[in-house]
């Protein structure tokens, strides 16, 4: 049991394991996403208030969920990297960051598209929107700090510390923003309590969320393999791989 985890620390082994796991998640993602999209766009009934515009939820909610999960995953990888000095963990964190930023941006963008038909505005300083915007800046900060160090080992550690500081702060920022909004204006829109949805609406949503997760894992494994080859390009096993 432990040897499996220990072997993951070796770039060669993790390259092989990623290669073995990758097809499973690609297939799952390629099954879940088209089925979920078709079901949500064509089969599930329109909302009685919002009509067809509510279907943005099938992109919006998975993107928002991923935006938060990816940061937690990055923080876990950073902790592993700082504590056990496992470089593969840092590579995983580095390939996850752009995906997380993209998901945050997608969540914000789809949300503002959704805001036009339902709220009549592109942007409102609602607690959720604001905290997502701040999270986007946290992602950009992590990516920018890594870029500033130019991919050195020192930069990797600095990014890991920043990620951990960020993950401690995300709940604080989130609740402070929620209280800030309720302090100043009574809630015009209550996003936290969704009306109970029928199964024909939430089943495709569940499929989409799972599909997004599988896509994220598959893409991370794929990019992790690239990163492993790139950083270990002088190791013998990579030379042998290249032939």
């Amino acid at each position: 049991m432990w040897t499996f985890w220990h072997k993951l620390g070796s770039p060669k082994w993790s390259y092989a394991i990623c290669g073995r796991l990758q097809p499973i998640f690609w297939i799952a993602a390629l099954l879940l996403l088209p089925i979920g999209s078709f079901w949500s766009l064509a089969i599930s009934p329109p909302d009685y208030q919002m009509g067809d515009s509510y279907r943005i939820i099938y992109v919006h909610v998975p993107a928002a969920i991923l935006a938060q999960s990816v940061f937690v995953a990055m923080a876990l990888a950073s902790a592993v990297f700082l504590i056990w000095k496992i470089k593969v963990a840092d590579m995983a964190a580095s390939v996850m960051a752009p995906f997380g930023a993209a998901m945050t941006l997608l969540g914000l963008f789809s949300g503002s598209l959704w805001g036009v038909p339902t709220w009549g505005t592109w942007w409102t300083w609602d607690a959720r929107l604001t905290s997502m915007l701040i999270q986007l800046f946290l992602y950009i900060g992590v990516i920018a700090l890594r870029g500033a160090f130019g991919g050195s080992d020192q930069g990797a550690k600095a990014v890991a510390v920043l990620t951990l500081v960020g993950v401690v702060n995300i709940p604080i920022i989130k609740y402070s923003v929620v209280w800030w909004n309720t302090l100043h204006q009574p809630a015009t829109f209550n996003l936290t309590e969704r009306p109970a949805m029928p199964a024909s609406m939430w089943m495709p949503l569940l499929l989409m969320v799972l599909g997004f997760y599988c896509f994220f894992i598959a893409l991370t494994l794929f990019r992790l393999r690239n990163e492993l080859i790139r950083r270990e390009s002088r190791a013998r096993w990579v030379q042998e791989l290249a032939g």
Binding site: F137, G141, L145, A148, V161, G166, N169, I173, V177
Partner: peptide, 23 residues
């Protein structure tokens, strides 16, 4: 402390710190 080793950390420093200042 994170940016002290970088030659020009000024703008980066504000990008890192400002989101944490919001609460």
């Amino acid at each position: 402390a994170l940016t002290v080793g970088l030659p020009r950390g000024g703008v980066l420093l504000s990008l890192l710190v400002l989101p944490l200042y919001i609460p």
